[in-house]
Every structure is written in C-alpha cells, then in structure tokens.
C-alpha cells in the first residue's frame, strides 16, 4: 500500500512534465546592476533564482544584493514574466523565507529613482525599473535566452 501511494505521487508528477515543455517569455521591464558588475547579460532562470534568493553570489564570488519595488508596473511585469508569481505570492514566498530564518527580505523601495540610487551605490546589487527610466549611475542587465 505504501509503495502504491509513493508510485502514485511520482507517476502523476512525472506524467505531467513532458506534456508541458519549457517556455521562456521575454521580460519587458529593465533590469539594472552596479556599473562595476562585469556581467551585462543573465539567463532568465538565473534572474528568477536571484529574486527568489536562491542564487546569492555572482560568478566572481561577490554577494548579490537584490532590490525590489513595493508595487507598480515594473514590479508586476517582472513577477509575471520572469518569476512566474503574483505580487501576493511573491510577498508570501519571502515571508516564508524570513520566518524560517532562510534569509533577510530584499530591500524594498517605492520608486524607480530610489532603486537606481541604491543600485548605483552598492556593488553587487541588482534591481528593476520601468523601461523608460533614467539609468544614471547604473548599468542595464540584459536577459538572455
């Protein structure tokens, strides 16, 4: 009986997997990083893992500092197109990490200019802003496929 139940869970799960295939959607918002960051492009999976707190180091070993916006179109676009979450589920995801001690929550700002100012001042940081915002002091980070 036990083995039957275990088999049921995995057969159900693995049966779904090949039917779906992998799909990537281009993000519409603008990702930014500190000008000293040697990377100018990053995969969609990596950027997702960065904003979920799973990828915490750049390839050179420096710590990644993520910045998020409290709300707004850039925030909703990144969550929908890159992270695959809603604003509420993203917030609850980070609550889970905070209340299990897994990590501190990301720095949160209310405006593009605050995000730009923070990213410009902190090496290793990464954030997102509206696509037409001023990039003074920061560098654009392209999402590669």
């Amino acid at each position: 009986m036990k083995m039957l139940r275990i088999s049921y869970i995995f057969i159900l799960a693995l049966g779904i997997y090949p039917l779906l295939g992998l799909s990537y959607v281009n993000a519409q918002e603008l990702l930014i990083t500190h000008p000293n960051n040697s990377k100018s492009s990053i995969s969609q999976q990596d950027i997702k893992n960065i904003f979920l707190g799973k990828k915490t180091h750049w390839p050179n070993g420096n710590r990644i500092k993520i910045v998020v916006q409290k709300r707004g179109s850039a925030h909703d676009s990144l969550l929908k197109n890159v992270i695959g979450m809603t604003s509420v589920s993203f917030r609850n995801y980070w609550r889970k990490r905070v209340f299990t001690g897994s990590s501190r929550p990301p720095k949160t700002f209310k405006s593009d200019s605050d995000v730009v100012a923070f990213v410009a001042s902190k090496p290793g940081s990464v954030g997102y802003i509206n696509i037409n915002s001023d990039l003074k002091g920061v560098k654009k980070l392209q999402i590669s496929q």
Binding site: K2, Y8, I9, A13
Partner: peptide, 19 residues
C-alpha cells in the same frame, strides 16, 4: 515523506505522503 507540487497559472496541485 514524498510529495509533488505543480503550479499552473492560478492553480496549484499538491499531494504528499508520510510514513
């Protein structure tokens, strides 16, 4: 314990077993 979770748009399917 074994478990599987599948998130598809606004739907989430979840099943787990514990002995």
């Amino acid at each position: 314990s074994f478990g599987a979770e599948f998130v598809w748009n606004d739907l989430t399917f979840l099943t787990e077993y514990l002995a």
